[in-house]
Amino acid sequence: MRVALTGAASFLGGRVLRRLAERQQQDELLVVDVAPPPAALGVRYRPLDLTEPAADQKLLDLLREEEVDTVLHFAFFTNPRRDQAHAHELESIGTLSLFAACAAAGVERVLMRSFTAVYGARGHNPHFLTEDTPLHPNPALGWARDKREAEQHAASFARRFPEMKVTVLRFAPLFGPHLHTFYTSIFDRRVVPVPMGYDPLIQLLHPDDALEAVDAALATWPRGAVNVVPRAPMPLIGALHLAEKLPIPVPHPVAYAASDLMWASGVADAPGAFVDYVRYPFLGDGARAKREMAFEARHSSKEALFAYLAYRYPGPQAPRRRREAATATDVEASA
């Protein structure tokens, strides 16, 4: 495999890059991005901005020159961007250019990163979202809209070029050490406003499981979308209490308006439409990953949460461990 990777600066892309760099002959791995990868990895790098007008032609030349046969597309924003136009150019149009170049260059396999959040969190969703559930994110949410468009481009190219294997991995929200996203930032505050009268189940995916899933996909290349989800979901309010947070119930119309206002004034990390994701569940169904990639997550949502908390509040300050640690030191002191 001669692999090209986009989005190496993203959390998951960076992890994938590290893992591939450790395992593979380094000349077979190529990073295509706006920012160079860490020099220590010694990975080859070709600068390219997917938002450029002629990005597809440039990428096509590059893919041909390097004789790339596998493209891993991880250039997506985990966090909502204030520059929505740029995010649209990168995620939707950039993905279109990428697939156009891949198809023209005769790339055999493309792996794209996506999100279970793209299904949209709606009350009327089935409890478990299988891969053929239509994608209906909140139309007010540019963040999810661009990702759905990217998925539509992927599906359309997969249909038009059947000789190109296109795999889309829809990851549940990542939660673990070294992650700083708008979703983990919920668990950084002491007081967390939550929509009153709702307690959805949430899925938190441990990054190690996400990497395992990428490995499984690279080995099996299932066609189409596959959900990558943790072993078990957990209720949002329970998760907040486990993290020793103080959830303050807010009527949901107020929550939408207030977070929109806070987003507009630069205080909040995410616009109001994201309240959907703490109001209704969006649980991916992991059956297809198990069936076609033989992938099953090893961590549950709770374990991912605790892994994050242990990272975020290191030492004896970690919730739940505080008492445990206190008694342990007592024993040591008197022993």
């Binding site: 002491r190 078990a232 329970g238 209490h241 103080l246 649980l283």
Partner: peptide, 27 residues
């Protein structure tokens, strides 16, 4: 303070809820 309030609330919550639910949320 916030911390003790959060801890009390948490104890109140887990007095009536379990930490692990099934995947339909049955507690």
């Amino acid at each position: 303070g916030w911390a003790s309030l959060a801890r009390t609330w948490r104890e109140a919550y887990f007095a009536y809820h379990s930490e692990d639910v099934d995947d339909f949320g049955y507690d």
